[in-house]
């Protein structure tokens, strides 16, 4: 923690952006696997994929890299934010609104809610899948733990669906700023490519958000 404070502001932002982009790549893999649950009513494809993720040794090792990514992103985000608050001890009476990236003003807030979501999500799925007992289900391709059933049951609860959708929306806003901001922090700015990066970031965030939101909505309303 002491070392974290010693890093310069730019170093912290570079670490922040690299961790953020790494976590973004994880979201893509997570979404692709999640979407499999919508493809067949027997949940075979999804359970097979979940089984692969839970048993493949390479993924097991990589899982720790992912945890590290989350922890680094969270710690640096909090440290940066505390320093930012301390830099203006006396606030303005009339708040300014000249920002050119609206969601950048709420990264700590959207981040905090996504973190709360993450903890609940972790308890609901990861801990249960890892340490709890989940009924097995047999297919022609083999016998797997029926993790898909856990998801379908959870998404029958309207309150949970609302919470899930809101959290994912906030994650989308977080990504919309974070994606293009990461490139700026890394110094990857160019008059020719930056407008494309910004557009790609917004489209990517929208796709990720819609993809994750579609799953609970389809399950709840079917």
């Amino acid at each position: 923690m002491g070392k974290t404070l010693q890093y310069s502001s730019i170093t912290k932002k570079i670490i922040m952006s690299l961790a953020g982009l790494f976590l973004t790549s994880f979201l893509v893999v997570h979404l692709i696997i999640n979407l499999l649950i919508l493809f067949d009513d027997s949940r075979e494809l999804f359970n097979q994929a979940a089984h692969f993720m839970a048993t493949n040794p390479l993924i097991q090792i990589f899982q720790w890299v992912l945890f590290a990514g989350f922890i680094i992103h969270i710690i640096f985000g909090v440290v940066l934010q505390i320093q930012n608050w301390l830099a203006r001890p006396v606030r303005y009476e009339k708040k300014g609104s000249s920002e050119q990236s609206y969601f950048s003003k709420f990264m700590i807030h959207t981040g905090a809610i996504v973190l709360i979501f993450l903890v609940i999500h972790f308890v609901n799925f990861f801990v249960k899948a890892k340490f709890g007992h989940i009924e097995s289900i047999s297919y022609a391709s083999g016998t797997y733990e029926d993790l898909g059933w856990l998801i379908v049951e959870l998404f029958k609860d309207g309150a949970y669906v609302v919470f899930y959708v809101v959290a994912i929306l906030l994650l989308g806003f977080h990504l919309d700023h974070g994606f293009q901001s990461a490139f700026q922090s890394l110094g990857l700015q160019h008059s020719r490519y930056t407008p494309f990066i910004k557009l790609a970031g917004t489209l990517f965030s929208a796709l990720i958000t819609l993809g994750f939101i579609a799953i609970p909505l389809v399950i709840y309303f079917s």
Binding site: I14, N84, L86, R88, S98, E99, Q100, S101
Partner: peptide, 26 residues
């Protein structure tokens, strides 16, 4: 404070200095 890439600075700069210079510094 640290930079959040909000770019209010560029919008308010009386000399309209571009945030592309921040990327160059990074």
């Amino acid at each position: 404070g640290n930079c959040t890439n909000t770019y209010a600075c560029e919008a308010e700069c009386p000399k309209e200095i571009s945030v592309t210079h921040i990327a160059r510094m990074n």
